[in-house]
Design a binder for these strands. Structure first.
Lengths: 186, 186
DNA sequence: CCGTTCTTGAAACAGTCGTACCATAAACTC
DNA sequence: GAGTTTATGGTACGACTGTTTCAAGAACGG
């Protein structure tokens, strides 16, 4: 009995809040401006999410969910030569439509460096990719349980993403990845 | 005539403020707690630096100055095989006493992604290393004006630093660098 | 002493922050 | 209609922000 709950509202708000965070970043986020941009009120944000901290956690989870969903658009990681697979991953990761995710990723990392306690599972953001890349580049691995190769591949990708987001020099970043691809696959 | 100025006070404050920022990060910085930690007052911080923005700029400049000064302790970049030089740079960069600088570096980068206007010369933080590494790895370069190789080396270093600061898994990071060193110098 | 310049403290200003409280409106069952 | 539950709006609280203002103290030259 009583008025029925409307869980869809929370979902709609979460989706729009995630859009907003991806567009404007996490650093300066505050409830009142966010509520205004989302056509709602700080009252409702607290009502739906309990606290700002929980809201942020929900937004980050949603952003991760979206990133994982779009991973489906990535070229297959099991086919072709290692160099071809690497190029495919890089093209996917460095595409302009992934830029907001990359920005948020670096922002969360930086905040996690100062407040590790806020991100109890930030190691998972590393190990998730780790497993994926570990199997994708098994054939160029240095033995059976080689963790160095996927770690190196991840480092190159993240390092080049860092460079690309800072300098915007896509051509140079592309050439650097090509250099690495040739080093990896003879 | 009149009371003589005391420029040393500003320098002392700047040094201690830089210590504090390196230890606690830039994100949550605010004048009153900072002043308390530095045994001074917000009034004096404003008196010496004009505004919080200028204080932060001065602190970042001082941090960069310190980093450049300690660069002298880095093993020579011109000697040995490329692999040896790479190991030397990595050992220097990833040393625990460099961790605060690395943290601040990532923090500034993340903030710069959202507010590029605050860091007009953040590209210099990239190109500075660029020139250094460009000459250091000229012998493994792919031609005369090869920008791909130093870009790749930088990406590996930064990517591994990212991994190391996030996971703390030094052994795996070291092995990944070793993998890269062997790829680079046959 | 006076005048001048640098230094410093205390307080206030105008704003934002996350959040809590209280009331009311809306949608449902009976 | 009453009763009950969810959904909102408005408002205020206490804490914090960077900055300003006013006043007084400290160190010098004349």
């Amino acid at each position: 009995m009583g008025r029925p709950a409307d869980p869809a509202r929370r979902e709609r708000t979460l989706a729009r809040a995630t859009d907003h965070v991806l567009a404007h970043g996490l650093a300066g986020l505050s409830l009142r401006p966010l509520a205004a941009a989302l056509d709602t009120s700080p009252r409702m944000l607290l009502y739906d999410f309990g606290s700002k901290q929980e809201l942020v956690a929900a937004v980050l989870a949603e952003a991760r969910r979206r990133g994982a969903a779009r991973l489906a658009g990535c070229p297959p990681l099991g086919a072709g030569t290692p160099a071809q697979r690497l190029r495919g991953i890089w093209a996917w990761l460095s595409a302009p439509e992934r830029a907001p995710f990359v920005r948020l990723f670096f922002e969360v990392h930086a905040d996690g460096l100062v407040h590790p306690e806020h991100y109890p599972d930030r190691a998972r953001a590393v190990t998730d990719w780790f497993d994926t890349l570990g199997t994708a580049f098994r054939d160029v691995a240095d033995g059976e349980n080689d963790t160095a190769t996927p770690t190196l591949v991840m480092a190159v990708l993240r390092g080049l993403l860092f460079d690309l987001t800072t300098t915007g020099d896509r051509e140079r970043a592309d050439r650097a990845l090509e250099r690495f691809a040739r080093l990896l696959g003879p």
